[in-house]
Amino acid sequence: MTDAIDPRLLRRAAEQAAEWYLDQREGLDAAQRARFLAWLRQSPLHVSEYIGMARLHGDLGAAAALDALDTAGLADLAATERAVVQLRPLLPRAPSAAPVRRAGTPWWQQAIAAVAVALIGGAAFLHEAPAPMDVYTSAGEVRDVALDDGTLLQLDRASAVAVRYGQAQRRFELLRGGALFDVGRDPARPLRVGVGEQVLEDVGTVFDAHRRADGASVAVVSGEVRIWTGEPAATQAEALADLRAGQYAEVAGGRLAALERRADLAQHTAWLPADIHFEHSTVAEVARRFAIYGGTPLHIDDAALAATRISGRFHARDPEAFVAYLGTLPGVRVQRGADDIRITRKL
């Protein structure tokens, strides 16, 4: 129904409708009422947007109640936003549509405004492509999120993570709850996770991080994680701790409160779902998912097999079913070693 309308015009009408709607709630004086009526009469679009705004309002309370963050969490989230106007377009523009310049703001004024914003934003703005995203879960769900760089994020129940990927850094803020981070390789962009005052620096890893009342807890499944209080410094000596695979630490009040050198990872990741469910995922991806749960490491030695796409559901803590499934594929051989399982191609 809105196909033919220029998106900018539509947004402007929507903003005006929102403003009038809010003003209306506060009460209009005679002069404002006359202006409001005149605005309505200006265009059917204004009528449609105003009715649409009223309709939207009817749903807002219920829709906003779906938001998983509490008031304090929202304030934390808002604080992560740069005090700079976002330049990314708010509407996807049809590729065929020629840019239409509307009367109102001349293009050169817009250009000057854009330059001014870029200058205010400074170097940091230019280096970090703004692609903010937030993922969260309700009390009853565990959710996984795959990111473009290959990083896989699994959120515990009642958790929230702000994702801020830039060109120089991949940054997560654990706003509440916890998550398991399976970090995709990208040596040019270190990955850091803010957990309250603590910052976790990853070195190619799978690890679990949870927010605690007075700090954080971290369990490392594979690789290595460095824990800092505040942003990572130049010297390694200032780091709070280096955790290796199989280790678990708790930080409270900026200090190490507990360190388990041989941690029970199954216990620390007990919140992970009992099922692994995937659709059209490669065998390599699925094997990686199983690795998160510990157990016998599974190596897929055949590139063609690793890239094969499969769908299914398995018990996460029982990789044997998955291994047995792989064994049924044509031309596939399962080799059991002392401490790993290799999947190869039959010769």
Binding site: D67, L69, T71, A78, M133
Partner: peptide, 28 residues
């Protein structure tokens, strides 16, 4: 509709989302 709207709210910029939810859910 409400679910879709909830999803749209979640995709707003952080401040817009915080302000909207605080106003309509928390009635601030």
């Amino acid at each position: 509709r409400r679910r879709r709207l909830g999803e749209l709210i979640a995709r707003l910029t952080p401040r817009c989302r915080a302000v909207l939810v605080m106003h309509y859910r928390d009635e601030l």
